[in-house]
């Protein structure tokens, strides 16, 4: 069963304009791998060169920030909703 992944505006352009897309996987990392197989341009926006979650985005599984769970190893189950949020910061 796929999970729903909600995309912020700036990533939709890489996903055919969709506000949310379905992807498969047992962990966030696997869901992202499935997503980037469908939409290769998303790859560099989700995961950095070290294979960690990209600092430009924050990811939630339902209402939980995955940085406080198991990051990309966080488990996902049917009906979970994954939200990708922009990291807004400055000085």
């Amino acid at each position: 069963m796929p999970v729903e992944v909600k995309l912020p505006t700036l990533l939709r352009v890489h996903a055919g304009g969709a506000a949310s897309v379905d992807a498969n996987g047992a962990t966030i990392g696997e869901v992202f791998a499935d997503l980037t197989a469908k939409f290769p341009a998303l790859a560099t926006n989700l995961v950095d060169e070290n294979g960690s979650l990209h600092k430009f985005v924050n990811v939630y599984r339902n209402d939980d920030d995955i940085r406080y769970l198991e990051a990309l190893d966080t488990k996902v189950a049917d009906d979970d909703v994954i939200s990708i949020l922009p990291a807004a910061a400055g000085g």
């Binding site: 939630y60 949020l85 990291a87 400055g90």
Partner: peptide, 15 residues
């Protein structure tokens, strides 16, 4: 006083 980062949970709520 020199930098800001929007709290992640607040960004989630806004979205």
């Amino acid at each position: 006083a020199r930098t800001y980062t929007v709290d992640n949970d607040d960004m989630k709520r806004a979205m």
